[in-house]
Design a protein around this nucleic acid. Structure first.
Lengths: 349, 349
DNA sequence: CTGTTAGCGCGTTCAG
DNA sequence: CTGAACGCGCTAACAG
């Protein structure tokens, strides 16, 4: 491979001059500049960023550490991150933790070894370990999607509490009073905040919160399915379900279909997260759409501002609003409540 | 930041000894080994991979360059790549080209600068430029999902021709003879191969190929929508549509719904690409499911084998079979051709 | 405007 | 079994 030295030889100048021409730093006479540029072209010279960054201490690369890129919400975040980073000359590495704190630490260590300039993290848990590691190496971190107890960290997320509130308020507005919730693990802020929003909406509507209607599990299809089946066994019956994310919603939908419970006739269903356009032809679910792309983009911009020194020194927390989109999975509760022994007509989901 | 020198000082040995202990290369007495390890722990020492790789000429990082990570098919590929890479100590950078060859070249150059060890590429076009660039830097490339005219390149993909054939054979088996196709750009091999499979299935069934029923556009929802509307205007009418990917299928579905054409009663629909479980509760479309995860995993393994010297020197082309999954979007053609009074039955997502 | 010197942090010689 | 010297490719810092 050609190095800067080869270019210097060919152009008959010193390596330093080549460096200056390439980076546009310092002066160079038009003549030598031209000679260098020609040599670069002739040799097909590509600078070695690894060597460059060994000196400059900056690799111009970011890392996005999330739970699972296969989740459309995170996919969209990833796209936002990548667009913002590429626009400013940064590359992005990605890592999937599957919500495991040990995987997360392992990746973070690997990325620290590679001297990444900054990390965008969707934390798998509440431990402060990741931040200590990054802090020790003075690698800035921006936390995405979730709250953490560590102070002094930049955060970008959607307003889970308000979103959940809006979703549940929509249900109470339709006349529902028995509303089940299926949410994620207790140690993830989005799980907690969405339950908090749910409780606030109920309280505002003058409805007592029944803890038996709140199920914590995980943000997965299986959780949605299992917990929905549990909710169906409760008496007096639930007339609406609030799923804390899209996977849970689809699991719940599957359980409802199996039980021949029609949505929205016999059961209303609302959820966080909309599917991107192009992944369905005819959206059916009433959702709280999170601005996932913007979460990714804003977070990356925040991080890049810090890295480029443009950033404020003060901590920044960006909370983006979600959008309630009412569709066909919600309706007023049936006049005659569904009973455990009732016979159902065919489901029309 | 602590360097290997700091560890050496603290342990009272030379940097070389530390290096040997850390990398498990060469000998070290148990006593010194212990001292070094303690120093590493006390200092929270993390090796600098950038410096290391300046020497070793290997960064232990791969790049995945695809059209759009937001497409579930590529998302799943990305996951397969990442899993395979992480298992062998490699990190992965990703880049979205949006099918633009100039973007692709720009990224490739950026990645070459960063001295990535290898590239997994979903080529945006048929130009040989990307391969020349990588070849000049002796960076191995594995081509994913698509064929390229360049010889000597490893490739991993699903069998588009056979998959399309199976899908269309399913339709002819049901009695369809007027089958429309909507596919991607003409310079992408998957577009072409799927049309080829379509034509073979028709020919085998003794049906003449009508070029008017074949529409090239792009792998997008808009293309599916627009071209489906065109196909609906044709006489004698088409009784089935083959969409070359999921986005096209959803666009077509939208056009059908607007035109009050019921699927599958008045129109059958088949497509490439299944949606991952968890993104729908009740799959409706008859599809040719591609093993996207395996495409990513196998491609990464192939590349890693080459990098680790385990790989064969000969070129490898892996063609994975897809799976025909028959669901509810296909049925025999209506006995009475579709008329204006048809009622569209909602197709649940 | 241009060249020289001196590392960045590590691993590969080659001597002890 | 251990250490000293050197260089990977590049760029601050300082001459000239």
């Amino acid at each position: 491979m050609n190095t800067i030295k080869d270019v210097a030889n060919r152009a008959g100048v010193s390596t330093m001059t080549v460096s200056r021409v390439i980076n546009g730093s310092g002066y160079a006479s038009p003549a030598t500049r031209a000679r260098v540029e020609q040599a670069v072209a002739e040799l097909g010279y590509v600078p070695n960023a690894v060597a460059r960054h060994l000196r400059s201490r900056r690799t111009k690369t970011l890392a996005l550490v999330m739970s699972d890129i296969t989740n459309p919400f995170f996919t969209t975040i990833a796209r936002g991150v990548e667009d913002a980073a590429a626009g400013r000359g940064y590359a992005v590495m990605f890592a999937n933790t599957d919500e495991s704190e040990s995987e997360e630490m392992e990746y973070l260590r690997m990325l620290a070894e590679r001297q990444i300039d900054g990390v965008l993290l969707v934390p798998a848990g509440g431990s402060g370990e990741p931040y200590r590691l990054m802090r020790a190496r003075s690698i800035p971190v921006v936390v995405l999607d979730r709250r953490v107890s560590v102070r002094q960290l930049d955060e970008v997320r959607c307003d889970s509490e308000a979103g959940a509130h809006d979703l549940v308020q929509h249900l109470t507005g339709l006349g529902h009073t028995r509303i089940g919730v299926i949410t994620g693990r207790r140690n993830i802020s989005t799980s907690i905040d969405r339950v908090a929003g749910y409780e606030r909406a109920l309280t505002e509507a003058g409805i007592d919160v029944d803890p038996g209607l709140i199920r914590y599990d995980s943000f997965s299809l299986a959780a949605g399915y299992d917990r929905a089946r549990e909710l169906l066994a409760i008496a007096p019956p639930v007339t609406a379900i609030f799923a804390a994310n899209n996977f849970i919603a689809f699991g719940a939908l599957r359980a409802l279909r199996e039980a021949n419970i029609a949505v929205p006739r016999d059961m209303s269903l609302v959820t966080f997260d909309d599917l991107p356009e192009g992944w369905h032809d005819d959206p059916f679910l009433t959702v709280l759409a999170q601005p996932a792309y913007d979460v990714g983009r804003r977070a990356a911009e925040l991080l890049l501002d810090r890295l480029d020194g443009t950033g404020r020194s003060k901590r920044v927390v960006v909370i983006l609003p979600g959008e309630l989109i009412v569709r066909r999975s919600t309706a007023p509760p049936a006049a005659v409540p569904r009973g455990p022994s009732s016979v159902h007509a065919s489901a029309a989901v």
